[in-house]
Amino acid sequence: MNVVEEKSIDNAWEELLNQLQSLVGKRPADLNAVLFLIGVQELGKGPIRFSKEAKQDLMHIAVCRVLSQSGYYTFEGYDKDGWPQWTLAKPVPVGDLLSQENFLKQHVIQYFESLLV
């Protein structure tokens, strides 16, 4: 990824964080916080208390959901407790921590853009 692409992702990310602050009343601290919000949204059970393990599961749901836009995961349905289940459809690109974070941020930005259409 070149510097221009990285800057545009950073700008779009900051804009998204500002929009989320307006929506939820608090600015998400980082990518994990945004993934948690997406997971809660995708689970569809509203704002309830989640255990630490459930919070990790919610972030996994979010990663699967946002990467499904590019065909990395396929939605399989819901388990007996109503949690969405995903299957890896193709390998996720490998990279260093920064490139993986930017890859996820791009998909998160696309996720929210698709909700506004």
Results as ranks from 00 to 15, higher is better:
F50D: 05
I9W: 06
Y73V: 11
G46C: 04
I61P: 08
K105R: 15
E6F: 01
C64R: 06
G44Q: 01
N11Y: 13
G39N: 00
Q56D: 11
I48L: 09
S68L: 00
R49Y: 12
N2Y: 09
E113V: 08
P91T: 06
L16M: 05
W13I: 08
A62Y: 03
K7V: 12
N11H: 11
K45D: 03
Y72V: 08
Y111I: 10
R49K: 15
S99D: 12
E14T: 12
S99H: 05
L58Y: 01
T87P: 02
S22I: 03
V117P: 02
Q56T: 13
Q100D: 11
E101T: 10
S8M: 14
K80I: 15
Q85C: 11
V4R: 12
K52D: 15
E15F: 11
Q21A: 12
E5N: 15
L43Q: 11
A33S: 14
N18S: 08
D10H: 07
P84K: 08
E113D: 10
W83N: 14
I38Y: 03
G95K: 01
S68F: 01
I9S: 02
G39C: 00
V34P: 06
D30Y: 10
L31K: 00
S51E: 06
N11D: 09
M1K: 02
P28R: 09
F50Y: 15
Q21S: 12
A29W: 01
V34M: 07
K105P: 07
D81R: 13
K90D: 04
E42I: 12
E14N: 15
D79R: 10
Q69R: 13
A12R: 11
N32Y: 05
A54D: 15
Q21T: 13
E101K: 14
D30R: 06
L115T: 13
